[in-house]
């Protein structure tokens, strides 16, 4: 182990890890917004909307995230979409994780007992009101864990944008392995930084889940 090398590269890698964090947060925000929309489509009364939601989920889950990134970044200009690598990466990752998160949201809503909707409707609440005041507050607790699993997968998935030269953690690792020929030292530093993010997030999700889902 080349300890001196590790000491030298840590600052650069921390900087790169910060880019990974930014990328994760942006994709997460976009992913959640799109996921909420897709879940609404999936739960709609209108067959055409339900189909559109199902098609979104099926296409984005049925093809590799890597190709989705390439299609947007390399193929985008052909259809008039010019994006820099970071934006293309964040958008593609967000649209991809949205398909998985939509299923987590839908699963949460469907696991709330049907009697809850009936009781709300029998009091005179409309469909939307029942959803908002009765079903969703209960479903939200059931979504914490699955959405957390999605978010952890997203953090690890951000490594894919290394392939379009976004200077995040994995890209930096690849470059340094190529220039130093010390794969194990580089892996050690990179792995520690990823694991802080991944297991930190896992811990946070655990605590949220215990705090909110426990009482229901």
């Amino acid at each position: 182990m080349d300890i001196a090398l590790i000491g030298r590269i840590v600052p650069v890698f921390v900087q790169a890890a910060w880019t990974t964090v930014e990328l994760s947060l942006l994709s997460l925000a976009l992913g959640l917004a799109v996921a909420a929309l897709v879940a609404m489509l999936r739960l709609s009364h209108v067959a055409a909307l339900r189909f559109a939601g199902a098609a979104y989920v099926s296409v984005f889950r049925g093809t590799p995230a890597l190709i989705q990134i390439f299609l947007l970044y390399f193929g985008g200009p052909q259809v008039g979409i010019q994006l820099d690598p970071f934006a293309a990466g964040a958008i593609a990752l967000g649209l991809n994780i949205a398909a998985y998160m939509a299923e987590s949201i839908r699963g949460g809503v469907l696991s709330v007992d049907r009697g809850q909707m009936e009781a709300a409707r029998s009091l005179g609440f409309g469909e939307g009101q029942s959803m908002r005041w009765i079903v969703l507050p209960q479903a939200a607790k059931l979504m914490i864990r699955p959405l957390g699993v999605n978010a952890v997968a997203l953090v690890k998935g951000t490594a894919l944008v290394a392939t379009i030269s976004v200077v995040e953690l994995t890209y930096t690792a690849q470059r340094f392995i190529g220039s130093t020929y010390k794969p194990f030292e580089i892996f050690a530093v990179t792995a520690v930084l990823y694991m802080i993010m991944v297991y930190g997030l896992t811990l946070l999700v655990d605590r949220l889940d215990r705090a909110y889902a426990g009482e229901a």
Partner: peptide, 12 residues
């Protein structure tokens, strides 16, 4: 291996 991305493992 659960805490790191596949791409990084591939490079390693």
């Amino acid at each position: 291996f659960m805490g790191t991305p596949l791409l990084l493992q591939l490079f390693l």
